[in-house]
Nucleic acid binder design. Sequence first.
DNA 1: CGCCGGCTCGGATACGTATGCGCATGGCAG
DNA 2: CTGCCATGCGCATACGTATCCGAGCCGGCG
Lengths: 329, 329
Amino acid sequence: MAVTSHDVARLAGVSQPTVSRALRQDSQVSAATRERVRIAAEQLGYVPSELGRSLSTMSTRQIAMVADLDNPLYPQLVGPLHDAFAAKGFRMVLLAERGEEIVSDGRLLDGSVDGAVLTTSQLRSSLPLQLQTRGVPFVQLNRVSELVEADSVTADNVAGGRAVAELLTRLGHRDIAAILGPRETSSASERERGFRAGLRSAGLTLPSARVVRGWFSYEVGRAAMHELLGRGNRPTAIFCINDIVAVGAINALTELALDVPNEMSVVGFDDLEIASWPTFGLTSVRVDFGGMASRAAELLLARLADPQGPVVHDQFPVELVERRTHRAR
Amino acid sequence: MAVTSHDVARLAGVSQPTVSRALRQDSQVSAATRERVRIAAEQLGYVPSELGRSLSTMSTRQIAMVADLDNPLYPQLVGPLHDAFAAKGFRMVLLAERGEEIVSDGRLLDGSVDGAVLTTSQLRSSLPLQLQTRGVPFVQLNRVSELVEADSVTADNVAGGRAVAELLTRLGHRDIAAILGPRETSSASERERGFRAGLRSAGLTLPSARVVRGWFSYEVGRAAMHELLGRGNRPTAIFCINDIVAVGAINALTELALDVPNEMSVVGFDDLEIASWPTFGLTSVRVDFGGMASRAAELLLARLADPQGPVVHDQFPVELVERRTHRAR
DNA sequence: CGCCGGCTCGGATACGTATGCGCATGGCAG
DNA sequence: CTGCCATGCGCATACGTATCCGAGCCGGCG
């Protein structure tokens, strides 16, 4: 059915290995032969089988990115990763993870990729362990697992959480609520830890009556805000574990005709593009996801080149971005 | 390095073919042997090489989805496609396309996928032609190419555009603007065609002074709105080629402190989740992308089973969803 | 007791490409 | 003229799995 290197060889009057070498610009074949082969290949519309090549060389030149596409954060990581890998001759494929569901199939283990970028590791996720056992190089981006010692690129979530607490307390807020994320993810739990530490420094605590916890989504933010407001007298400020949740919270406030920031200060995290929309003007914590993605690609490529090299943990600084959703009490 | 079926065979005291058969529950191998093999495989942590299997069977059980991840519409198609394929034993990989850039590499042609779902075909895109020539089954979802006769699943964009025009004219608007999409995409040009036809039915036209054209993005919508308003006296209503553009336009209006819908009616298209956010309450045209995605998967699987079957063009109806961004003039 | 059939399994091979190695050719120096 | 080396190419094989076909074994039946 499909055209193979044997077909090209027959047409060009050479052997199959010569076709293989010629098309890869191997200097062992003469310029004349190379040209003959090129013509024949073009004539037949020959495209080398990636399967055959991979099996023969034991390398696929493919990198998998495991991401949760329901979360608007991740599409943003795709571009930089793609470019960094493409520059080194690697292809990138996306393995979609949906909601909280974990990738269970063995596409990462069955030899069809050379390495992986994990962006949605949970703290006790076994996937990184499996990869390590099977010798599949990988790097953790954004979130990490605590079960494994491996290359990672993260943001300084603790500092970010602390900065939010400092901002709000400095503005005079004393009754502060929070919509937190799942304890199972390192990013959410670090942000929470930093935030609580910041409150403590100001002599405050975060009572459980002022906390709702959920996954990173618009709908969770919206429902959580309603839940918090339904508990009686309302806080004067709220910290949201990320921008999507914050936007959900703001929409809940809009539904109830409560003004932001006059009746409630709202702060997010991530500084996605949506935070800068005039409609929201969301105060948030900027994370350089583009830079982190590039760095992660760099680390993975280094790991492919030297599987024994020292493990690297890279932490990116974050920056508070003050817009219009916070106000002095 | 990696564990192969030969290793398992040696440990279980059988031949490699027997391992292959045993692990795939082939009834030719006795229950006892099957169990011995299973134990041995587990003990070694054996994972069958997908490369070897694919090369041997000439089928990869992988489907590629080509999508533009910068557009929030596409993540929404991933889930339904993924599930429909998974149900039939196929894996899905995403090939990212960025902005207007076309996928140029040959991952679709090099035999590493059994088929493809194209979601971002441009009208004169050559990719579908190449696939057809190479005999790679594919289905076009959402947008189609005019150069090829192949399975497709689309929305009734013409009817949607017409419905928007009818809504606005019925409300008494006479000076209507539009932020249109690229002529190179079927979805945008069909919506435009329907919209213009609807205006014509009401005795109106769409003067070029009232039109800005751009790609499907927030920033385009925002800039286009500023551009339109900078041209002097302003229209009373505007049709945006999709919801993302509409949200950009609304944000531009917010920046200028112009009230929606009192000073300008805005209508989008697609009815993404964001359209239903209380903050926007965007009037839009609902497209059943989930249903379309499932149908596309179905068509592709049918095509894989019967490459010679009749070509199917499936068009889904759309529905106007009236929210709060339109108002009688 | 011999033959046949069914049940299990293994040997050989195929899939498409890459590569180690050997062979032929030709040129040049001795 | 002979020997040597460099160049250019083909043969054989490897990668890991699936499958065709044949071989062995056992039981049952004639």
